[in-house]
Each structure stands twice: as structure tokens, then as C-alpha cells.
């Protein structure tokens, strides 16, 4: 590992971004919407993986920061009439601050206690969104977000999302592959040992949490504008569970795994919804399969198949 992306990965990434940039040429409103939604969820899942895959903790409350980003951006844009270049950073900063606050308490704990505390804080965010009707619209949702004119139609918004998400992912990649990211991996692998060699493990885990919360906030802020609305459900634990499944499905030990998981799960869900009302059953089965057969997710599966092919051709 180092700060240089392997050439193969870099080429694939550039190809994907290039293909996305050309997508509007197909003139399919459906594909543009779908791609926008997937990009948002991909960023959301990648951000969660900083906690799970890199620092080795499980958060059951990651939706809280997605929701905070969404609500803050929506409220500043609409209720207070702030311009986007102020409201968006403010939303991201507030998500980061909220994550820092929660991290301060959660990092005192490990394992299941850490996970439960993240869940508790996220339900607190949900309760605030639900109860503070005069500001958030309560469970009617905050509908009618004033999206700035330059991104108020489909294609410009798609490019806006593409730029922000690509930039955010590049930044996340850099963070995760810096010395900081490698220290996180050390913490994940052996907390005690990392502590003994001088890593401030609590601070590292806290910082990972803040990084994750920040980028979840970015995803949330985009999503609020995309939907022209934010709803209490975006802070609910089911939303946290959904992004957790995305991360696990893609593979938590790979940087890009969660993005793949997000795309696959989201597309599956959309197609399933067209043909059956039993999506929760499908999602449950997917989770079972991951836990029982694919602990390293789709990326892990691809690696195993790749390794087998190499062995066979070598033999």
C-alpha cells in the first residue's frame, strides 16, 4: 500500500468515471436517475467502511450522519435561503461535528457496546427529526427543498453528483491509504498491540468515525437535493442496516467493495420491487448468504475465483 493507486485500479476507475460522464448521451432519464442514486449510496457505503473495514468497529447508526447532512443542507437552502456553496459545506461540517461528538463517547467502548451506542445516538437523531416539527417537518418530512437553479434539472444534477462523489471517493481513498489509514488497519488487526507500539488507538478510532460521518454527510446532502426532500426514515436504524448490508455484500476488506455492494443491492432492490413485494425476504436471504458463504463479500468471491483460475492455469 502507498499513496499511489495501482495502475489497473486507476484505469478501471477512470473508465467508470468516463463512462458515467458519457451516460447522459443515451438520453435515458431512467438511467441518469438510477446512476445518481447509486453514486450517492456508493459514497454512503464507502464512508461506513472507514469504520468497519479500516478501524474494525461496527456502526449500527451510520444513517444518522447521512440524515444530518440531508436535513442541514435542506433547511439552510430552503428555510434560510443560503446559497449552495455555504449550505453544503455547513451540512458536511455539522455531520462531522455530530460524528465527533458521538465518537467521543463511543470510542470509550469496543465491539458490541460500541455498536449499540452508535445505534442509540442514531435513534436520538431520528427522534429529534421526528419531534422537531417546526424545523424538520416531523414525519411529514421536509419536502420541497429549494435546489439552486443551475442544478435544478436532471443532467446538471447528475454531473454535480458525479463531480462531488468522485472527488469525495478520491479523498477517501487517499485518507484510507495514508499513514493514518495504515495505522487504522493496525488498530483493526490488534488493538492492544497497536497501543503498545505507540498508536493512540482511541483517537484513531475516533478520527475514523469522524471521517466516515463527514462523507456520509456529503452523501446525505446530495440526496436531500436529489429527492427535493428529507424524511425521518433516513435516520432510522433500518437505513443504517441497509448501508451495512451494502458494505458487507461488496466486501469490507476492499476499498471499493462497498461501492460495488451498494450498486448491486440497490439495483436488485429496484428490480425486485417491480416484480415482488417480498424485498425484505430477498434482503434477508442476501444477508444470510453473505454471513454464511461470502464473509468477504463479492470482492472476496471475485478474488477467490481469480486465485483458483490462476492456480489452474499454472498447473
Amino acid at each position: 500500500m502507498g499513496l499511489h493507486m495501482p495502475r489497473g485500479t486507476l484505469i478501471v476507475c477512470l473508465l467508470i468515471v468516463g463512462a458515467l460522464a458519457l451516460l447522459p448521451l443515451l438520453e435515458s432519464r431512467y438511467l441518469i436517475d438510477l446512476a445518481t442514486e447509486i453514486m450517492v449510496y456508493a459514497l454512503f457505503a464507502l464512508s461506513l467502511n472507514v469504520i468497519i473495514g479500516f478501524s474494525g468497529n461496527v456502526s449500527f447508526g451510520h444513517a444518522a450522519y447521512f440524515a444530518i447532512g440531508g436535513y442541514v443542507n435542506a433547511i439552510l437552502l430552503t428555510t434560510y435561503g443560503w446559497p449552495l456553496w455555504l449550505s453544503f459545506p455547513a451540512a458536511v461540517v455539522l455531520s462531522a461535528l455530530a460524528a465527533a461528538f458521538v465518537a467521543y463517547f463511543c470510542t470509550r467502548l469496543t465491539d458490541i457496546y460500541f455498536a449499540m451506542l452508535t445505534l442509540a445516538f442514531s435513534m436520538l437523531v431520528w427522534a429529534i427529526a421526528f419531534k422537531w416539527r417546526s424545523v424538520t417537518g416531523g414525519d411529514d418530512g421536509f419536502v420541497g427543498v429549494a435546489v439552486p437553479a443551475f442544478i435544478d434539472s436532471r443532467v446538471p444534477f447528475f454531473y454535480f453528483t458525479l463531480v462531488i462523489v468522485t472527488g469525495s471517493i478520491a479523498l477517501l481513498w487517499t485518507i484510507c491509504h495514508s499513514a493514518f489509514g495504515q495505522a487504522l488497519v493496525a488498530v483493526r488487526e490488534n488493538l492492544t498491540r497497536a497501543g503498545f507500539i505507540g498508536v493512540n488507538t482511541r483517537m484513531m478510532r475516533g478520527l475514523a468515525f469522524v471521517v466516515a460521518g463527514t462523507f456520509a454527510g456529503v452523501a446525505g446532502a446530495i440526496f436531500a437535493m436529489y429527492n427535493r426532500g428529507v424524511y425521518t426514515e433516513s435516520a432510522f436504524w433500518t437505513e443504517s442496516a441497509q448501508v451495512l448490508i451494502m458494505t458487507l455484500l461488496g466486501g469490507m476488506y476492499s476499498f471499493f467493495g462497498p461501492a460495488i455492494g451498494a450498486a448491486v443491492l440497490y439495483i436488485l432492490e429496484r428490480f425486485a420491487n417491480e416484480y415482488t413485494e417480498y424485498w425484505p425476504t430477498v434482503a434477508g436471504l442476501i444477508l444470510l448468504v453473505i454471513v454464511l458463504v461470502l464473509p468477504e463479500g463479492l470482492v472476496g468471491l471475485a478474488r477467490r475465483i481469480g486465485a483458483r483460475l490462476v492456480r489452474r492455469s499454472g498447473a
Binding site: 431512467y30 436517475d33 442514486e37 418530512g141 426514515e233 433516513s234 420491487n273
Partner: peptide, 16 residues
């Protein structure tokens, strides 16, 4: 389409 009683899911379904 099933709205699942969730506004964001309903919005996505309506767009689709």
C-alpha cells in the same frame, strides 16, 4: 410499485 410506506422509496418508485 410498492411504496413500502417509506417516502424516499415512494419517490424513487414514482420517478422510475
Amino acid at each position: 410499485r410498492d411504496t413500502k410506506l417509506k417516502p424516499a422509496a415512494a419517490a424513487a418508485a414514482a420517478k422510475e
